[in-house]
Design a protein around this nucleic acid. Structure first.
Lengths: 213, 213
DNA sequence: CTGAAATTTTGGAGCCATTGCAAAATTTAA
DNA sequence: TTAAATTTTGCAATGGCTCCAAAATTTCAG
């Protein structure tokens, strides 16, 4: 299980590039920082940057691993007698209550948001992330509900659940961008989650209820 | 009200560039066709292309004017006693029943979809279009419902209604991409719209009901 | 009709993201 | 210690996009 020098170096190099890039982006914005600058600051060649990161946006979103599967995990881990949507609502409430950085409830997240806000390529990347989340969740729901391939319901429910998630994320981003403090926003998100739940139909809230084992 | 030579020429040039570009894209895909080729085929300089179209994607989506305001228009034109969501559902059913090209229910839409499917920048542009639709609708709902600035409901309802719209559009695109014929897809979309309506809560379906005049 | 003013078109130079390729440099393993 | 595997690098090129100043074209006043 020993890790060779080569692999350690690769990991370190990759991390260094990512860190330095993120630092530069937070400081001066996404568009104004060039890949060449990142490379120079990280003391590697431009090609090496591209060896690790397929595109400039990947330098910024390097920390968001596992986000795509998050909703699916929550659904798979739902309690007995609990539906997919209710599991997600419960987990999101927990994140909000815990003032979780994963939700963006942390000091300095406003600078992070500002960079995204001002860079169309980054926003576009976020949308494509949402798409991935949706598709992943749809597949999970299809399995968990035992639906056949032609059934449109898993897709529709996935759409509703992904919408919950996205709505809260956007709201957090918007509020943090205004310079609000995490604790305040946290409480608002709990209210928002209640509002959202009230808007959902029983059909959505009761889809894919886990039976007794 | 006479139109000068100058303005006619501008309109013609713009149209010629757009037409030729779309033709080339449909024939050979979005990424492989360069702006230089479009310019040469349209017998203008590259700079002239950029005079009319801020970015390459605008050459492709030039025909989609007014799409952003569509949902808002439908909501504003809702009948007495009809809610925003029900108005949109009714209009979308009408579009589906009419096998409307605006929904993508037309011969050759599969080639159109294929170009989009294979070009990330075009997909990304569609997402940003969705975003605009949502924001426009949210503003409209806020007005029509007389909600105050802090009320989160117009935003949430706009999210749900925009989701209806998007879901149908995506479904049409997916089916047409498979080579299905418009009439068939039209009928499926009517079923899908029923499925969607069943998933919506009364709160969504009864938001912003127009009172008797 | 004529020339100046306004507007459009164009050429050219340049920046930057991204790709491809082949030559170093480095690490591994025999 | 050397050959093989892998990573890093330099170099060249493509294509989207911007900026700028010089033509070319159209409008309009006199």
């Amino acid at each position: 299980m020993a890790e060779g020098l080569r692999e350690r170096k690769k990991r370190e190099t990759r991390q260094r590039i990512s860190d330095i890039a993120t630092g530069l982006f937070l400081e001066r914005g996404f568009v104004t920082v060039t890949i060449a600058e990142v490379a120079e600051a990280a003391d590697v060649s431009v090609n090496t940057v591209y060896n690790y990161f397929p595109a400039k946006e990947d330098l910024f979103f390097d920390r968001s691993a596992g986000v795509v599967e998050q909703l699916s995990r929550w659904v798979r881990a739902r309690d007995e007698g609990e539906s997919a949507a209710r599991a997600v609502l419960r987990e999101m409430r927990a994140e909000a209550e815990a003032v979780s950085p994963r939700l963006g409830l942390m000091e300095g997240y406003d600078r992070f948001m500002r960079v995204i806000h001002e860079a169309p390529p980054l926003r576009s990347r976020l949308w494509s992330l949402q798409q991935e989340i949706h598709d992943h969740l749809e597949a999970t729901l299809r399995e968990e509900a035992g639906a056949c391939a032609g059934d449109p319901l898993p897709g529709l429910i996935a759409g509703q659940i992904a919408w919950i998630h996205q709505t809260v994320f956007v709201a957090v981003g918007r509020e943090m961008l205004k310079g609000r403090n995490p604790g305040e926003v946290s409480r608002e998100m709990l209210v928002l989650l209640d509002d959202i739940e009230e808007l959902l139909s029983e059909k959505v809230l009761n889809y894919a209820v886990r039976g007794v084992e």
